[in-house]
Amino acid sequence: MALLNDEIIKNVTEMLADLANDVRLVVFTTKNGCEYCKEIVQLAEEVAATSSKLTTEVYDFDAAPDKAAEYNITMAPAMAIVGKRDYGLRYYGIPSGHEFSTLMYGIQRASQGEPDLDPPTLSYLSELTQSVNIQVFVTPTCPYCPRAAILAYDMAVASDKVVADIVESMEFPDLANRFSVMGVPLSVINETGRVEGAAPPHMIVDAIKAALAQ
């Protein structure tokens, strides 16, 4: 049974009709207690079927450690959204509910390779010399979460130093507990900075500055 209904497939086809460059959805599954791995692979394949520019690759996280390392994937299920080059767009868990929009945005941005950010944010990101990991904790039912997630994706596209990990909190409870996540969206910068809510770019930039200063 298909995950995406006809209306969604029609809308996705329209949204992805003018992709500039090829995009690979690199999916990592695991046999180690993965509730939705089958569905994540199916989702990636159904989305990929809507555009000739999209392809999927599926790897077993435990059996292909080299591939996981290549994409810096630290847990599964996961998806790397890779355009002309790897901009560091990652999704951990299944992007369902409101988070489906995040996946679509990630595909569009990875294909285009251009971030949609204001000049001051772009300027700051272009001067980064240290690595920045933005983990955005989300839930599929949260209408505010895609805003935080796509901002992280834009920042990752803007700078080779930034990696954006969107984490579906319910599927990674241990990680969510580690950061005491009890509300979403929550952006965690380099495992130290913490920004609650769908914050505007300047607040994330401030959090990055603070995290890098530590």
């Binding site: 995950l3 995406l4 809308n11 489906f100 895609p146």
Partner: peptide, 10 residues
């Protein structure tokens, strides 16, 4: 079991 919501590009 799953639903998939597509918002317009914000």
């Amino acid at each position: 079991m799953f639903d998939f919501t597509l918002s317009p590009e914000p």
